[in-house]
Write a protein that binds this DNA or RNA. Structure first.
Length: 915
RNA sequence: GGGCGGUUAGCUCAGUUGGUCAGAGCGCCUCGUUUACACCGAGGAAGUCACUGGUUCGAGUCCAGUACCGCCCACCA
């Protein structure tokens, strides 16, 4: 038992730390997170709800983006759980091979160690120790967020089940002809000492130089012509060591006479042809391009077209290799300087102009990415992509927000093969073995092959590939590897395909596309029916959060300050799918204030229990015979809120749902519902049955709002709910209580909404008049009222509330306008609404009434002016034959009613203003 | 070079299928010790919904174009 359970009500002050304390443990103890947990009240036969979350990298603590991700997912999961569906939300961690190595290398660097100094084995030991601590940090954080994850299923992309899936998947791709090994141009990061995929290369603007260099013509007898040359333009002079041709455009008249001749590449003294190829642009540089197939994607393509040799001139460390003759061993920058200097001396460097260009940099280390020829494993993506596209085109998988489908289409249509080899240590080793003859053997067997598949050489002569897989290869298997695939498990049958994938749009290609492609290939089914993409959390001025900029919001700090509920509410409220959000302090504050408001409203409700109701009794529905208009109004509005929230959630419009709830709790329940209820609760002239009905109405409204808010503010709502009377069918914990059902809808009551609507208008009008006339708020004023039967009836039915909320007494309701006019004699403050008219009299005992009346006249003049304007517009609309003829009948009718109301108000105002 | 998103009150943003949709919060101004809440209550001021055309009886809401801002994709030396 917690304090909250024992306390008769709630502590006076809302303290998030106290509220959150112990609740997560209660959920855990009740075993409600697992789809088949003992405390989970899933309906038998209900369709499971399975959500996929991006497993966070084990590289460190979670940031506010993770908190937002977890929040969105928890909202969906809690909503589904309360709707009686078995929910599976599986916690996981990603080994993030390259990201993890970058982080660990940085730590090692601080200790004077390095990857090289430790060696593979000790390095990996060190990595395991590192991830074992970050894993604990991440789990602790997730719990503080309130994430209702099924912790018994915690998975890691480096655990054995994942390894098995990776080996099996790769072996099958190989068998299916979708994995192949070849030498091709790859993106080499010298800092990370590995290749990376195209997605990991970030084009970065840089001001470089475009140099013009002369290559001299070589005669057929081998003599070099000092007076005849071709001028090429390049931004990378050091790559000339690998040049194998010069290309010009076929239609370029400037170089007709040079076509087919040979030129000399200096320093390496290589004689290469001048070729033509339409890839060359006539209007750029000199119109002649050096071709370096081993170090430039476009040149590589050109080289393939012309069957040119490919000469690699860089080594792994980013230095010139032995093919660079005298430059071998030099760093690329140094080589460039020396080459330029020597060209200058020879008189062959003839131009240098600044040039804006894009340099590819490593997403992880920011090093310059060098395209190089490498022998790598690739996944043939075209056939996989086609099936992924088919899934979204057919609607079997839906992407939200929809406009991401275009991005999706484009990328998958233009997809290139995926280099999955990485020359890293931390990850899944590629299960491929090579025999001395170069035969390849791939197997999913953890023990490896027994012999070469092709030539049957014994295993002892085989060598396993040293490389590991791109980390996204194992993440791409996540939706089914976590359920036991490749084995045909109960979990797989029950929970695959998953329901919703929830993640940020920034990894749509890295992760979403790969899961779709691999999922469909291996299971025959798209892994989820809905892909919900959320936006990025940015700082207060819209900048990307980053540790180096120092503008990050630490979720734990925010939770310490304002509580997990407020942080969660702030992250969801006012946001929509796919759109970035700015996390400003005021949004956090607003959410915290809302939590405080709810807390205090609950305190009031619980504290207002009539003495005739037993403290520990079960919650009962209010007695229908004892309900007044205010009670029926509260029930009706709560029903409307429920419907609106349901609609919003069905549309995945969670930011809309919180907005509705914020408004419902603050503006409706608190500002009017509770204030109206106070009138009856404190009215000792009423029967106790009437007062009990009022109280049960409030409890019911509070209860419904708590249920609706629970997915968004789980701790706070659970804490309040614990202190709230429960129905006999209710469980002990709100987390597994039923979502407000269809019976709530039957509480809509148009008549009550109209009645209370009149009273609200009256109270507002009178308060407004009082305020404008600077009447002391504490002064009670007499009011005369006349109105149509509906308005008069409403005022009569809610007379005590009207009196109290507008602070008026006595209230005289006249049955005829003549009587009303006779009684008021034109004195006092006028308040005019639709269907009624009131005069607030005896404004002040001391001050000169004349002044106040003059002030009031000014207010009425302004009101008359605006009302006349509205009336004129409304009349003009009705005078338009096209409108009356073409607009739908209800719209026209509405305009007529509106016009009549306005005319009525104008008439009354004019009358009041008659001298 | 292609594509996408944004541009609504001083600030941060909502506005579902075109018809009380011109809104909310914060900020600002005036009041307020009414027994849930000053992390509050009551009232108020404030926007030609980026611009230009078009469709329509009617357009922040649909279409076309323009201007800024942001993002994504792309082999231009």
């Amino acid at each position: 038992m917690t304090e909250a359970q024992e306390a008769p009500g709630l502590p006076r002050a809302y303290d998030p730390a106290v509220v959150e304390n112990g609740i997560y443990e209660r959920w855990l103890a009740a075993d409600v997170f697992a789809p088949d947990g003992a405390g989970n009240r899933a309906r038998p036969g209900a369709e499971p709800f399975v959500i996929i979350q991006p497993p966070p990298n084990v590289t460190g603590a979670l940031h506010v983006g993770h908190a937002f991700t977890a929040d969105m997912e928890d909202v969906m999961v809690r909503h589904a759980r309360m709707n009686g569906r078995p929910t599976l939300w599986l916690p996981g961690l990603d080994h993030a091979s390259i990201a993890a190595q970058v982080v660990l290398d940085r730590i090692l660097d601080g200790e004077g160690e390095s990857r090289a100094s430790l060696g593979r084995e000790r390095y990996l030991e060190r990595m395991w120790a590192f991830v074992n601590t970050t894993r604990e940090t991440i789990i602790r954080q997730s719990r503080r967020f309130g994430s209702s994850l099924d912790w018994d299923r915690l998975r890691f992309t480096m655990d054995e089940t994942s390894s098995k899936a990776v080996r099996t998947a790769f072996a099958r791709l190989y068998t299916d002809g979708l994995a192949y090994r070849t030498e091709a141009l790859a993106n080499w990061c010298a800092g990370c000492q590995t290749t990376v995929s195209d997605l990991e290369v970030v084009p970065t603007p840089e001001t470089g130089t475009l140099w013009t260099i002369r290559y001299h013509v070589v005669e057929s007898d081998g003599t070099v012509r000092p007076d005849r040359w071709i001028e090429i333009a390049t931004t990378r002079p050091e790559t000339l060591l690998g040049d194998v041709a010069v290309a010009v455009h076929p239609n370029d008249p400037r170089y007709r006479d040079l076509l087919g001749v040979n030129v000399l590449i200096p320093f390496v003294e290589r004689v290469v042809p001048v070729i033509n190829d339409p890839v060359v642009r006539l209007d750029f540089g000199t119109g002649a391009v050096k071709i370096t197939p081993a170090h430039d994607p476009e040149d590589y393509a050109t080289g393939r077209r012309h069957d040119l040799p490919m000469i690699n001139v860089f080594d792994d460390a980013g230095r010139i290799n032995e093919n660079g003759n005298g430059y071998a061993g030099l760093g690329l920058a140094e080589a460039r300087r020396r080459i330029l200097a020597e060209l200058e001396v020879r008189g062959d460097l003839v131009g240098a102009v600044p040039h804006e260009m894009l340099i590819g940099r490593c997403q992880r280390s920011n090093d310059v990415i060098e395209p190089r020829l490498k022998t790598q494993w690739f996944i043939r993506t075209k056939p996989l992509a086609e099936r992924a596209l088919e899934a979204t085109r057919s609607g079997r998988t839906m992407i939200l927000p929809e406009h991401f489908e275009k991005v999706w289409e484009h990328w998958l249509t233009e997809i290139r093969d995926w280099n999955v080899s990485r020359q890293l240590w931390w990850g899944h080793r590629i299960p491929a073995w090579y025999c001395p003859d170069g035969h390849i053997t791939v197997t999913a067997d953890p023990a490896g092959p027994s012999a070469c598949e092709t030539c049957q050489r014994p295993v002892a002569t085989l060598r396993q590939d040293d490389d590991i897989f791109d980390t996204w290869f194992s993440s791409g298997l996540w939706p089914f590897s976590t359920l036991g695939w490749p084995d045909d498990t109960d979990d797989l049958r029950r929970y695959y395909p998953n329901s919703v994938l929830e993640t940020g749009y920034d990894i749509i290609f890295f992760w979403v596309a790969r899961m779709m492609m691999l999922g469909i290939h291996f299971t025959g089914q798209a892994p989820f029916h809905t892909v919900y993409l959320h936006g990025m959390v940015r700082d207060a001025i819209g900048k990307k959060m980053s540790k180096t900029t120092g503008n990050v919001v630490d979720p734990l700090e925010a939770i310490d300050e304002i509580g997990a509920d407020a942080l969660r509410f702030a992250l969801v409220n006012g946001t929509s799918a796919g759109n970035d959000q700015k996390l400003a302090a005021e949004r956090l504050e607003s959410a915290r204030n809302f939590g405080n408001k709810l807390w205090n409203a609950a305190r009031f409700v619980l504290g207002a229990r009539p003495a005739t109701i037993a403290r520990d009794g079960a919650r009962v529905a209010p007695d229908p015979d004892e309900l007044g208009p205010a009670e029926r109004w509260i029930r009706s509005r709560t029903a409307a809120t429920t419907a609106a929230v349901n609609r919003a959630i069905a549309d995945y419009a969670f930011g809309e749902a919180t907005r509705i709830l914020y408004d419902a709790v603050w503006s409706e329940l608190c500002d009017w519902g509770l204030e109206l209820a106070k009138v009856r609760l404190t009215d000792t002239s009423l029967s106790s049955a009437a007062r009990e009905a009022t109280w049960w109405t409030l409890v019911e409204a509070l209860d419904t709002n708590l249920r609706l808010l629970h997915p968004f503010m789980p701790f706070l709502t659970e804490a309040i709910w614990t202190a709230t009377p429960h129905g006999l069918d209710d469980p002990e914990l709100l987390i597994v209580a039923d979502w407000p059902g269809p019976d709530v809808a039957t509480r809509r009551d148009e008549a009550a909404e109209t009645e209370v609507g009149v009273v609200i208008d009256l109270v507002r009008g009178i308060r407004n008049a009082r305020s404008e006339a600077h009447v002391e708020p504490s002064t009670w004023l007499p009011v005369d009222l006349v109105g149509d039967p509906a308005a008069a009836g409403a005022a009569e039915a809610l007379r005590p509330a009207l009196e109290r909320l507008a602070r008026i007494r006595p209230l005289t309701i006249h049955s005829t306008r003549a009587a009303f006019l006779a009684a008021t004699g034109g004195a006092g403050l006028s308040v005019i609404g639709s269907g009624w008219e009131a005069v607030v009299g005896r404004v002040s005992a001391e001050a000169a009434d004349a002044d106040l009346i003059a002030l009031d006249r000014q207010r009425l003049e302004r009101e008359l002016q605006t009302t006349r304007g509205l009336l004129a517009a409304a009349r003009a609309r009705l005078a338009n034959e096209a409108f009356v003829g073409k607009a739908p009948a209800p719209v026209v009718e509405g305009a007529r009613v509106r016009t009549a109301e306005l005319a009525d108000q104008v008439a009354r105002l004019e009358e009041r203003l008659k001298p």
